[in-house]
Design a protein around this nucleic acid. Sequence first.
DNA 1: TCTGGGGTCCTAGGACCC
DNA 2: TCTGGGGTCCTAGGACCC
Length: 426
Amino acid sequence: MAHDIFALVDCNSFYASCEKVFNPQLADKPVGILSNNDGIIVALSPELKRLGITRGTPGFKIDKQLIRKHDIKIFSSNYALYGDMSNRVMQTLTQFTPDIEIYSIDEAFLSLSGFEYLNFSDYGRKIRDTVWKWTGLPVSIGIGPTKTLAKVANRFAKKHSFIENVFDITDHPNKDKILRWIEVEHIWGVGRQYAKMLRRNGIENAFQLSQAPDKWVQNKMTIMGLRMVKELRGISCIDLEMDIEPKKEIVSSRSFGTPVTEFRDMQEATAAHCTRAVKKLRTEKQVASQITVFLTTNRFKNEPQYANYATARLPLPSAYTPDFLKAASKILKNLFRPGYKYKKTGVMISDIMNQSKAPLDLFEPTYLDDHRKTIMDCMDDINEKMGSGKLTYAATGIKQPWQMKREKLTPGYTTSWSHIPVVKAC
DNA sequence: TCTGGGGTCCTAGGACCC
DNA sequence: TCTGGGGTCCTAGGACCC
């Protein structure tokens, strides 16, 4: 059997690059994208990285003088735009192999097994150039015999301009050297806690980790860690996942634009999350029978803190929004304590199953056979045609003073007819 | 003034059953 | 000091990912 070969295609500074595609004036500027609620920096163009700003920096902590001096551009995140651009990239990648796993909004694993007659680096460059031509987005490509090594190769490709963002680590003469160059915190599967633990034990880079004894690794890092270490050694343990599995839980949560103190506002926000989450549930053709509501104050503030959550079960699996709204409202009444400044609330839906697989009940119709489904389908159709949010529940409120901040939003160039870019003749 | 949101998997321990 | 053993299911917590 042929050996596995994986390519990891990763868009460089994805959100920032998306903004640059539609605004040529940003081309050489330092660009940063903020998280929801204009909170922290989640994506940085190379120019911004060079100024020493890092992912996770709160927007308000970026020095105003630095912004002026270097003409730094900061934007709210425009997920509708990024999602659309992501689809274009993924669509482009399917030209190069039938076996593709969309791993995240800006990353995909491709299987190149069976393409051994090709020079993988050449093929990688062809992929890179095609994505650039078709979408205007720069990508880096790492190639290796395991997903973890493809990740390593990708990191190497990104950090070394002389290899033009494409690197194949398979059978590379300097493989060990490269693994020594990868510090433990940059290995796929090693986060903050494991990195600390590994360093305490004298393991500082990927090469050292690959030499650690199996038993020790499994003991310290579970079976997942062992799998990862084997992958570093070149033994493929993590397969390509091509089928999109239905979600096991669906979460909707958000920080408030301004702190919430009133029960009524909290109830509206929770209802809005509930509505969003159940809509997602229907999109996946699923039903669920469990709902959790949570709320929290602002842990960064020196003021009374309160965080709590509670779960309720529905009598029968459902995808009918009012079933969840009722449950959520009841939970919230028990959860809410007056006298706090709340920062965030959210809803989690779990115990999810396919609509057609929901158990039958002797007395009640299943969601699939019920008028509740007809109502929901009708509502979803109208929102689809007229724009989402046209039809909603009174419980979610009108004024919504708790809505998140998005003060620096760019137009929805590809996702909204009214924002479509215009080419002007000079 | 201002510090994100949405997921997954594994393990230990308790509840419960025989 | 003693307290049965073993299987299964569920949950909370901790780790990770982007």
